[in-house]
């Protein structure tokens, strides 16, 4: 196990440096000029411009800039946002819990609906129910989620007035950020109704973000189940007269677990990409919205730091999933 972990970590090292190169390189070849963006319509004089470029360290030779950058990164300094003058890492970790909360709820939504749907489709294979479930999940898989979000807002928030349109909590409530997870924070606070409000705010974004994972999980579960159901020992179990429910419960769930873990691993990057769109649409104050804003406003150092942090979190999650997978299914360790 340790050896496996060590091997995986060793592969991550070059990838990590690759990502620093990418993040660094991108920013340096981005057209446009951060100083000019900050000045806007009012402009900036040539001397002041040169002064600010020097101050930002953008006048040094590239290799020197890269060495400085790597040195800073290894010391945990990811630079300072050009717009807010705050450390990038600080901004990131302030917003990260919001994205994590949204992603977790989305994946829970996907699992809770997706696994039963997949099992039912497999058991009722070939029937209308199966075709219906598979049709819906393929539609979900084909969904342009930015449009899906807009559609749900038009329907549920505007026409039916059922859900709030954006944000994480009604502003009537004052909740101290303890964990950064609004559900937990609002539950701990003594504000009545805050928890309910937080739940309400989470529904639509989670559904939108969870749609594609839901479709993937349902489809994966179904095919895993079909494979299991056709295997000899299951047939034997059936022949022995065990109730179908028991067969499914005992033999299928274990396999479903493996599927889910794999899919979650594969879906982390998908979820983060989806979070960019979902957070933009629902005004969700997370890192997806933040990084988009940073790209658009040419906040060089925020994009640079953000890319690295996001890539690192994807790597960490993938590593964790690999390990979990190894625990469930020890064969792959060798």
């Amino acid at each position: 196990m340790l050896k496996f972990l060590f091997k995986r970590l060793l592969v991550l090292v070059p990838v990590f440096f690759g990502v620093t190169l990418v993040a660094f390189g991108f920013i340096r070849v981005l057209p446009g000029d951060p100083v000019e963006v900050l000045a806007g319509e009012r402009g900036v004089s040539a001397e002041r411009h040169a002064e600010l470029m020097t101050q930002l360290g953008l006048n040094e030779p590239l290799w020197q800039q890269y060495l400085n950058y790597i040195g800073d990164v290894l010391q945990g300094d990811l630079g300072t946002s050009l717009i807010t003058n705050r450390p990038v890492a600080e901004e990131f970790f302030e917003l990260f819990p919001a994205t994590a909360e949204l992603a977790i709820c989305a994946i829970l939504f996907a699992i809770i609906l997706g696994i039963p749907a997949g099992i039912i489709a497999a058991v009722k294979r070939g029937t209308l129910i199966d075709q219906g479930i598979m049709g819906i999940s393929l539609a979900g898989y084909s969904m342009p989620i930015f449009w899906w979000g807009l559609l749900l807002i038009i329907l549920f928030s505007n026409t039916l007035n059922l859900t709030p349109v954006s944000g994480r909590l009604s502003f009537l409530f004052e909740v101290e950020p303890v964990t950064g997870f609004m559900l937990i924070d609002s539950f701990l606070s003594d504000e009545k109704g805050a928890f309910k409000s937080a739940m309400h705010h989470l529904v639509l974004p989670s559904v939108v973000l969870g749609t594609i994972p839901l479709a993937v999980i349902a489809r994966q579960t179904r095919s895993a189940m079909l494979e299991v159901l056709s295997e000899d020992y299951v047939r034997t179990a059936k022949a022995k007269g065990l109730s179908p429910l028991r067969v499914i419960a005992i033999h299928a769930l274990r396999n479903a677990m493996i599927t889910v873990v794999t899919v979650i691993g594969l879906q982390v990057a998908v979820l983060l990409a989806g979070a960019i769109l979902t957070e933009t649409i629902f005004g969700w104050p997370g890192i997806g919205k933040w990084i988009i804003f940073s790209v658009f406003s040419r906040d060089y150092f925020a994009v640079q730091g953000g890319l690295l942090l996001i890539a690192t979190s994807v790597m960490v999650v993938n590593l964790t999933v690999d390990l979990l997978y190894g625990l469930i299914n020890p064969r792959i360790l060798h």
Binding site: N161, P164, S166, G167, F171, K289
Partner: peptide
Amino acid sequence: LVFAITTDANVRYQKLKAGEC
């Protein structure tokens, strides 16, 4: 006084209608 940061104009209008701001 609370500033509820809402970047999308559609959404701001929704919130105003709902009495959220």
